[in-house]
């Protein structure tokens, strides 16, 4: 067995979990043995539990998203919480809204797009700050249906 061949073999093993390898060919014998690498699990067991907590949070969020109605922006534009700068906002956290009620205005090219609620419910989260730009399809509100 050539020395280059052995080098290549060692290189290949680097990124694997293999701890022991034995090759017999044409009467020659090669045995490679190495200490097992410690995996990230063994180094930091708390990372694993944090990961599972994140997964749980994810699941909880998914469930919440399923339960909550999401209002998204149909156009790219600027998010306005109120009809005029000094006027009170259309809705606030905890506001009860009816289907068809105006929640905000998205402005683009001076076209004022009134966004309506598509459910009866309570505003459980406002996801964008007043005056901020929003993208097409960006979530604006979460509403807890009643």
């Amino acid at each position: 067995m050539e020395i280059d061949e052995i080098k290549q073999l060692l290189e290949l093993l680097k990124d694997t979990d293999i701890t022991e390898l034995q090759i017999e060919r044409d009467g020659s014998k090669l045995k490679i043995k190495r200490e097992r690498f410690m995996s990230s699990f063994e180094i930091a067991p708390h990372v694993k539990s944090a990961a599972s907590a994140a997964a749980k949070e994810e699941a909880r969020k998914a469930e919440e998203t399923q339960r909550l109605a999401t209002i998204t922006s149909p156009i790219v534009g600027i998010f306005h919480m109120s009809p005029a700068p000094e006027a009170p906002p259309f809705v606030e956290f905890g506001s009860t809204v009816k289907k068809g009620q105006v929640l905000c205005i998205i402005e683009a090219m001076k076209l004022m797009n009134e966004i309506e609620s598509d459910v009866d419910g309570v505003i459980s989260k406002i996801l964008v700050e007043n005056g901020q730009p929003v993208e097409y399809g960006e979530p604006l509100f979460l509403i807890e249906p009643t």
Partner: peptide, 24 residues
């Protein structure tokens, strides 16, 4: 831009476009 209407730099007309829409 986008829809101001001016004569000699002064506003001669105005446009207010209000839309009601759902997502699609």
């Amino acid at each position: 831009w986008p829809n101001d209407i001016l004569i000699r730099g002064k506003k001669a007309a105005g446009i207010l476009t209000e839309m009601k829409s759902s997502m699609d």
